[in-house]
Design a protein around this nucleic acid. Structure first.
Lengths: 329, 329
DNA sequence: CCGGTGGTATGAATCGATTCAATCATAGGA
DNA sequence: TCCTATGATTGAATCGATTCATACCACCGG
């Protein structure tokens, strides 16, 4: 220990935590000893004595999805204001991985957790929260009392997309969607239906929902390809994709079938407004979610909560960004 | 504590760590008590006693860059094999942030660190490593004895790109590059020069290097635009971009100036081969780096190192993926 | 009946920083 | 000169899990 500086343990601790109570001269002496030895205090010991301090955990679904990393960036930006740090991990929508990471975070005495819950998993979270670890749900509304949440109105998002297509005059919408066990997928479908009904139409006549093999470009490509094959080689007039990666896959599928020519006969709307949406072969119309703000707000709620603040449920509104891919040619 | 199960602390500890030495009957009794109370052992205390255990830290340059998240995924995939977990953070190429996170990781008693070093920063890392925390450098070769590293041969990457353009018959290459203080930028330039010289030409005649305002799409767009303005409105015949985001920006710039028409007169080569490279307006020729393998290998090296294994320097070879953007029309 | 052996359980010592009551030093006031 | 107020430093107790030497028990062979 750095009492090679000729002082007691208590004084060293004071230099770190309450420098003002230490005489300037002593402080300097200790400080130089610290620098020379490259002394770093043991975080585990600090934390053991103090309770949790600086780190906040975030458990996302997929660390490679730009939507989540943008959210994470918002979280980080809020946390650095208070000198907190972020521990990231991804659950891959696997409840088992989720449970494992939740336990690890709790063992590490994390200050609180931001969690994008997997399809079905709330028991662990509720238990954790009950044990006194503040939890804020991300991209999912909370029904547990005392647990804050930050989410986006996915019904409104689905409605925006469908309304846009209907207003263009398309009579049918082919909806490449994920399983309804995923809340977001179900909600977006509900929004689509609402837009259809608002125009006096019957969803059963207008909406053709096609379940995706996977929620990425490969899934979009294959699923749309199979659909086209099953319909005598005719492409749909208008497609709504549950996220932009799927939309990219759909475009790829159409282009392959059009002999690598740009296909402009089919309207496509995506979801998430990823960075390159504007730069694609067909600049993609998409529903934008305020990712950065979501992360920022969630971190803010968590820190407030940890300090005894109020429970809140923030619901952001999505926004439609219209580009060439959805316009009638 | 869970000695409401009627046993001593030591026994509870044994149930967790050496279940075989506890009598089955006792073990069950303790286990049910644990489950009922939702008992989670205090990670700080464990770690204090044991030394570091499960977590590995990774400090990346930018968490939003797909290149780094793909690498992170490789890391995670390796770590889960040994039940380790990953703490992620991004330094934003800011040495101060880097230092802060390094200290935090060390305080947390991390098992080891994977670091993509900022432009100039090795002192901290060397000191840390000297203090006994295993460090593996990512995407940068190590010159410090005892410190393993995983990197890609950026000289070869630059050479691949330039050779491809030269072989297409282009007489000049406009290179949108970052500052040479960034090792990768400098190395790629060296590779370009090597390709030029190998063909008996003088780099001074062939290569026009243009410094970028920022290493993203906005930077690529603006920098190329300024260059074109400075050259009487004429676009270069062949462009090499230091990464794919810059290439996307360059394409955007060209399209804007071509009245939103696809511009096929200019050849473009990017770097990183991001996911959507094939789906862009001009499918992008790019230099691919084995991101996932890099992460996996780095994590493997780190775990090996922590277990007293050897120091190693792995250098991966990049690969050129040719698409339409670079082909003579 | 005794000593030995193997299988279990115990609890005190330990890790290292923090905290707080107690000690020590110095200066100022009476 | 003595007493007190103020400021600075000390060191023992503490956090909670792990570890290890010790104790306990039952059973077996001699």
């Amino acid at each position: 220990m750095a009492r090679a500086a000729g002082v007691s343990v208590g004084t060293v601790s004071n230099v770190f935590n309450r420098p003002d109570v230490v005489a300037p001269e002593t402080r300097d002496r200790v400080q130089t000893a610290i620098d020379e030895l490259g002394f770093v205090r043991n975080g585990s010991a600090r934390q053991l004595r103090r309770g949790s301090i600086t780190t906040v955990g975030a458990l996302l679904l997929d660390i490679r999805n730009p939507f989540f990393t943008d959210v994470a960036r918002g979280v980080e930006d809020r946390l650095t204001l208070d000198d907190h740090t972020l521990m990231l991990a991804s659950s891959d929508d696997d409840p088992e991985r989720e449970a494992k990471y939740l336990r690890l975070f709790e063992e590490h005495g994390v200050l609180g957790l931001l969690v994008v819950p997997t399809s079905r998993s709330t028991e662990h979270l509720v238990a954790l929260h009950g044990r006194g670890v503040p939890v804020v749900l991300l991209d999912a509304p909370s029904s547990t009392p005392g647990m804050s949440s930050v989410s986006v109105d996915d019904v409104a998002g689905g409605e925006l997309a469908a309304a846009h297509l209907l207003d263009q005059g398309f009579a049918t919408i082919t909806f490449l969607n994920g399983p309804h066990s995923i809340r977001q997928c179900e909600a977006r479908r509900a929004g689509v239906d609402r837009a259809v009904r608002a125009r006096g139409l019957d969803p059963a006549d207008v909406v053709h929902e096609v379940p995706l093999a996977s929620l990425d470009a490969v899934g979009g490509d294959q699923t749309l390809g199979a659909w086209i094959d099953a319909h005598g080689g005719a492409a749909p007039e208008a497609i709504f994709c549950v996220n932009d990666l799927v939309a990219v896959g759909a475009q790829r599928c159409l282009r392959k079938r059009g002999g690598n020519e740009l296909v402009t006969g089919t309207a496509i709307v995506g979801y998430d407004d990823i960075d390159v949406a504007a730069e694609l072969a067909q600049p993609l119309t998409s529903v934008r979610q305020p990712t950065h703000e979501m992360g920022y707000e969630a971190a803010d709620l968590l820190l407030g909560r940890a300090a005894g603040g109020p429970v809140r449920h923030t619901i952001f509104q999505p926004e439609l960004v219209v580009r060439a891919s959805s316009l009638r040619s």
